[in-house]
Simulated assay, not measured.
Amino acid sequence: MRPLPALAALAAAALLLSGCASAVRGTAVAGEVPPSTAPRTTTSAQASTSAPGASGAGVSCDYERSGTAAKPVDLPPATSTDTPAKVVLALGGGEVIVELSPDTPCTGRSFAHLARSGYYDGTPCHRLTTSAGLQVLQCGDPSGTGSGGPGYVIPDENPDSASAYVPGVVAMANAGPHTGGSQFFIIYGTCDIPPDYAVIGKTDAAGLAVVTRIAAGGVDSPSGDGPPKTPVTIESAKAS
């Protein structure tokens, strides 16, 4: 792990983003590993993508238990004929509708499962970055520390190119290969990162405006990387 100078206390939990601009090069979105431990690595959490449908039907996902859950939740179903098309986040006084990507069925199924299970309800968005090379809001850790996860890891479904990371995209945070769990980030501006983070889906102009408004409130850190100055909570998350 390469430490983030402004967040030394979270260095061991930082998500690797080696392609970021110099102001944040080395790290960015915090991952889901306890402080002072190495990133979890598993080799069996792989997706079997035999004849997948647009909704994820036909895809078998190997979700593997790992670590302690920040909030109790069951494993997502390995297979499903009921893959939601969207997740609606009531976030910071506004609504962010995430249209799930058919290209990442295992990631989307887990995201929707956590929403349906109430895992995200009442949880904070613990990190906001406002640098020229990284402009994201990160949420999904009930502990609010940046090191919490659901107690399982999901298969990696990373994009082919970094061009996938544009404003409005919602992507999965991680701490290296095979460590994605519940933390995610919403891109509201520039996001200069390598293609190492599965794209969950994308929000529309209205959802992007909600996140942009949150970002305009500033960061509670002189580095421009830390908790939002005005606390932000996922009031509820609903999958449909």
Rank of each mutant, 00 (worst) to 15 (best):
P3Y: 08
P3F: 06
P5R: 02
A6Y: 02
A8L: 13
A11C: 02
A14R: 10
L16M: 04
C20R: 08
A23N: 00
V24E: 15
R25V: 11
G26C: 12
V29P: 02
E32P: 07
V33Y: 12
P34R: 14
S36F: 14
S36K: 14
R40K: 10
T41E: 11
T41W: 13
T41K: 06
A45E: 01
T49Q: 10
T49N: 12
S50M: 13
S55C: 07
S55V: 00
S60P: 02
C61M: 10
Y63W: 05
E64S: 09
T68K: 07
A70G: 15
P72D: 10
V73R: 02
L75S: 11
P77T: 06
S80D: 10
S80N: 07
T81W: 02
P84E: 08
P84K: 11
K86Q: 14
V87F: 07
V88W: 13
L89I: 03
A90F: 03
G93P: 11
I97T: 15
V98Q: 02
V98P: 04
L100K: 06
S101E: 00
S101I: 01
P102C: 03
P102Y: 02
P102D: 04
D103W: 00
D103N: 09
T104N: 03
T104I: 01
T107E: 04
G108H: 00
R109G: 04
S110H: 05
S110Q: 05
F111T: 12
A112W: 00
Y119L: 06
Y119R: 00
G122I: 04
G122Q: 11
T123W: 00
P124F: 07
L128G: 04
T129S: 14
S131V: 04
S131D: 05
G133I: 09
V136E: 09
G140I: 02
D141E: 03
P142S: 08
S143D: 14
T145S: 13
T145Q: 10
S147M: 01
G148W: 05
G148C: 06
P150D: 13
V153S: 07
P155W: 01
P159K: 09
D160T: 12
S161H: 10
A162D: 10
V166G: 09
P167R: 12
P167G: 08
G168P: 09
V169R: 15
V170A: 12
A171T: 10
A173F: 01
N174I: 06
P177W: 03
H178A: 06
S182A: 15
S182N: 04
Q183C: 09
F184I: 09
I186C: 06
C191Y: 15
D192W: 08
D196Q: 14
G201T: 13
G201F: 09
T203K: 12
D204L: 10
A206G: 06
A206I: 03
A206E: 15
L208C: 14
G217P: 06
G217E: 06
G218A: 08
V219N: 01
P227R: 15
P228T: 11
P228L: 04
K229V: 01
T230S: 12
T233I: 15
E235D: 14
S236L: 00
K238S: 06
K238V: 09
S240M: 07
S240I: 05
